[in-house]
């Protein structure tokens, strides 16, 4: 039983980290209509900045720089590239983002080399024991920080002018600008938020139980794509639910691989998130919480 509980908690905490990334996808998508395939390298960038700076300026200042750096890069991608796109259709923007991803990732890979850079996180490899259940401290912290982050997002989007303005701009940009809402500002805010969320996720994805910053971390963002899609492309709560579902699924399928192998074959844990995504989309084509507009009949 404690094993089951441990896998569940592991899955949920990992799922929360995925949901940070998925929420970033969703926020950029709603605020600028861009499928941000460069998100993975922004995740890596945030963690990389912390890894190279923690020695000289200390871990927490490095975290601030990491978050800020990821936010600035997001804003810059939007301001320099997305906004100047001659043909502003989603397909072109998505391909542009793939290009940005390759450039960023190649540069980061070159800098990281074949090293595994440690993050210098103060929680190190410590663990928290609750009865029989052992959880890495980093994971417990990740869950806490993620919950706080989503609380802050909820507050922003439902209780502040900026957040309501962002939602209005996402729903209908031209109309929102008739209310005096500057679309360039809401878009920049969206990209900055996504960058910050990505960096937070990057930090937790590269600290214990993961060893450190290696280029493969950028691939973790792809693990968040099913979470984003099944939550509904444009829904932050959907991203949270999607992340939890994906995290839980992969933890349980992997944790019970020995028992499941006769039916599913080995290595199903890697495929399971996509299977879940496809099943969800078959039942609900717009995702779990994606906008099926509130329509009056």
């Amino acid at each position: 039983m404690s094993y089951f509980l441990e896998q569940v908690l592991n899955g949920l905490s990992y799922g929360l980290v995925l949901s940070l990334i998925a929420a970033g996808f969703a926020i950029v998508f709603t605020s600028t209509g861009v499928l941000n395939f460069a998100h993975g390298s922004v995740v890596l960038l945030g963690a990389y900045l912390v890894a190279v700076l923690h020695d000289t300026i200390g871990f927490w200042p490095a975290v601030l720089v990491g978050l800020a750096g990821a936010a600035v890069v997001g804003v810059a991608i939007n301001a320099l590239l997305v906004r100047n796109l001659a043909d502003p259709n989603p397909g072109t923007a998505a391909i542009l983002m793939l290009g940005v991803d390759i450039v960023l990732l190649t540069e980061l890979t070159r800098r990281i080399g074949n090293q595994v850079l440690t993050l210098g996180a103060p929680w190190g490899a410590s663990v928290v024991r609750l009865g029989d259940v052992t959880l890495p401290t980093g994971r417990v912290l990740a869950a806490g920080v993620t919950v706080v982050a989503f609380g802050a997002l909820w507050y922003l989007f439902s209780r502040t002018d900026l957040g309501v303005g962002m939602r209005a701009a996402a729903a209908d940009g031209p109309t929102a600008s008739l209310m005096g809402i500057r679309l360039s500002r809401t878009a920049a805010t969206g990209w900055a938020l996504a960058g910050i969320l990505a960096a937070v996720a990057g930090i937790f994805l590269t600290s214990f139980p993961a060893p450190g910053v290696a280029p493969t971390v950028a691939l973790s963002a792809f693990a968040a794509i099913p979470a984003w899609v099944l939550g509904g492309f444009d829904s932050v709560p959907g991203a949270v639910v999607g992340g939890l579902l994906i995290g839980l699924t992969s933890a349980l399928v992997t944790g019970y691989e020995a028992e499941l192998e006769p039916f599913l074959g080995s290595g199903f844990g890697e495929v399971a998130p996509y299977v879940v995504m496809i099943v969800v989309l078959l039942v609900r084509p717009s995702g779990l919480l994606g906008s099926k507009e509130a329509v009056r009949v």
């Binding site: 309501v164 939602r167 729903a171 929102a176 209310m179 005096g180 509130a294 329509v295």
Partner: peptide, 22 residues
């Protein structure tokens, strides 16, 4: 705007809040 163009997913109060953004 023509066709009303209210923000359908936002509540009435939030629509007004967006209107008073400035």
């Amino acid at each position: 705007p023509e066709g009303r163009r209210i923000f359908r997913d936002l509540t009435v109060a939030e629509n007004l809040r967006a209107g008073g953004y400035t």
